[in-house]
Each structure stands twice: as C-alpha cells, then as structure tokens.
Amino acid sequence: MNPAARAELDRLRQAQRSASLATAGGFRPPQDPLTSWFARGVGLPHETLPAFEGTAMFPLLQIRVSELPFVPPQLRDVALLVLFQNLSRHPFDRPHGDGWLIREYASVDGLVLLPEVARPFRPFPIRWSRVDDDAPGWEGAWEVVDLTAVNEDEAASDAFFDDFSRHMGTKAGGYPYEIQHGVGHHDFVFQVGSEEKVGWMWGDNGIGYFHRSPGGQWRWECQFY
C-alpha cells in the first residue's frame, strides 16, 4: 500500500463516529410506555395521531433519548421523539408533516400512550448498544478525506471496504449507511432500517434517513436495493 493511501485511511479511521444501534425485542417488554419502541408511541393528553389524506398515521419509532448510550448533538435538548409514518405509501420527496412527522418533547412529564391504530406491524421494545467505529460509505467518505490515492491502490481500496465497519439497520448518530449513493452526513441524526421483526420495509430492504438542521427543521430521504 502506498504511503499516501495509507495516510488517507488513517485519517478516515480517526473520523469514525460513535452511534447507538437499535435491536428490536429479545427481552420482556417494559410496562413503562416512555421507553424506546418500534410501532408504539406516546404524546401529550391533548394530542391525537397525526393524519395523512384523512387516515391516521402510526408511530414507527419512538426514541427515549436518555436510553441512548451515544446521543447525537441534535438530540441533547430532546427527552423523547416519535417518528410517525402513514399507512398508504412512502412519502418520497414530501416535506416534514406531509405523510411523515416527528414530534419532539423536551420532557417526558405528562406523556401518555397514544391510541392504537390498525396496522400490519408488530410493536417491539428497543435495546440500544454503542459502537465507536462507524465509518462512511464510499461516496460519503469523500466528504471526510481525499480518496484519490486510495482509489489508485488496490490494497488500499480493499482495506477501505474490508477494514471499516458500516452499521446498517436502525441507529442514532454515526454515518448514514449508503445503499445506492451518498446521503450526506451533515445534520444526520438517525436512520430507520427495514426491521424484519417489526414487519417494516422501505422498498426492497431499504433505509430511511432523517436529518435535522441547526434551526430544527427535519428532512428525510430513503434508499433501497
């Protein structure tokens, strides 16, 4: 491996990020609704389920931030958030609030379990685990280092793909896991994978990515195979 390529890989290794990885179920569900869940959510007593085209949406993911072993900086003032999705179709290219919605709460005081809505998904509590070695994919890595020398060295190119961890599935923090192309890691907060236990799928085994700007505006995109 040539020295220039090795140096860039070392720089990339130093740029690895921490993340909290979600595992669905595998333990007795807690009685407390104010924990992290797939397909179950809470809200304030006056709040109802958000609607899309006249039909109630459902809570796809609830994150209790204090349970995260690593907390993304955008969530440090958030106690709990709930991601809602509609039941008819993936809201591609739609802005926040149109077919998908994230509610944030600075405190869990007064939050109550939202009513159930008929859905083909199974609720599971979430257990989080921390990793400190999440690396970007090929396109995203160009935003961090110059891969020109790596691209020109076969051993370095193999090391890029073989020696770094890129965590897919549902996670908070880290880098977005690329499927088709770069996602952009600036303002990235969390991703939701296709969760087999839950029965949730983005297209063909895809991932939904959620970004939050410094001003608090959410945006999302999706990639699948």
Rank of each mutant, 00 (worst) to 15 (best):
I102C: 07
Y105S: 08
D98A: 11
V112N: 05
F121D: 01
P73E: 12
N86R: 09
L49C: 02
W37E: 03
P45M: 03
F121L: 07
P136C: 09
S88V: 13
G99I: 09
F121W: 13
V42A: 07
P115D: 05
V42M: 00
D93M: 14
S88T: 15
G110V: 08
F92A: 15
R127Q: 11
L81P: 04
V108H: 00
Q31P: 00
R89P: 00
E47Y: 08
D32E: 11
D134R: 00
D133C: 13
D93K: 10
P69D: 12
Q62I: 06
L114N: 06
P29E: 06
A106Q: 15
D134C: 06
S36W: 08
L44Y: 04
H46S: 07
L114F: 07
V42S: 07
L114A: 10
R122Y: 12
L114E: 10
S129H: 14
R76D: 08
A79S: 15
R89T: 13
F124D: 03
Q62W: 04
P120M: 04
P123Y: 05
D93G: 05
D133R: 02
F52W: 13
I102V: 14
R127C: 01
W128T: 06
T55W: 11
D132Q: 13
V65T: 05
L113A: 15
R130L: 12
W128E: 03
T35Q: 15
D109L: 05
P59I: 08
F52R: 11
D134T: 01
P30E: 10
V78G: 01
T35N: 02
H46C: 02
P59M: 08
A56W: 03
Q62H: 08
V78L: 00
S88H: 07
Q62Y: 08
S129E: 15
P45E: 01
T55Y: 11
E116A: 12
V82N: 09
T35P: 00
L60C: 09
N86M: 10
A79V: 11
V42C: 10
E116W: 04
L80Y: 11
L61K: 08
P95H: 07
E53Q: 13
V131F: 14
L49V: 00
R76A: 09
Q74P: 00
R130C: 05
V78D: 02
S88P: 03
L81C: 12
L111I: 04
G137W: 07
R40K: 08
I63Q: 10
A39I: 13
R64D: 14
A56M: 04
G54K: 02
F124Y: 15
G99R: 07
D93F: 15
D77Q: 11
I126L: 14
Q62A: 06
D32G: 01
P69F: 08
L61G: 02
L60A: 13
P72I: 11
R94F: 09
E67G: 01
Y105K: 06
P123M: 03
Y105D: 08
N86A: 07
V131S: 12
F38K: 01
L75V: 04
N86P: 06
R119I: 02
F124K: 05
E104K: 06
V78Y: 02
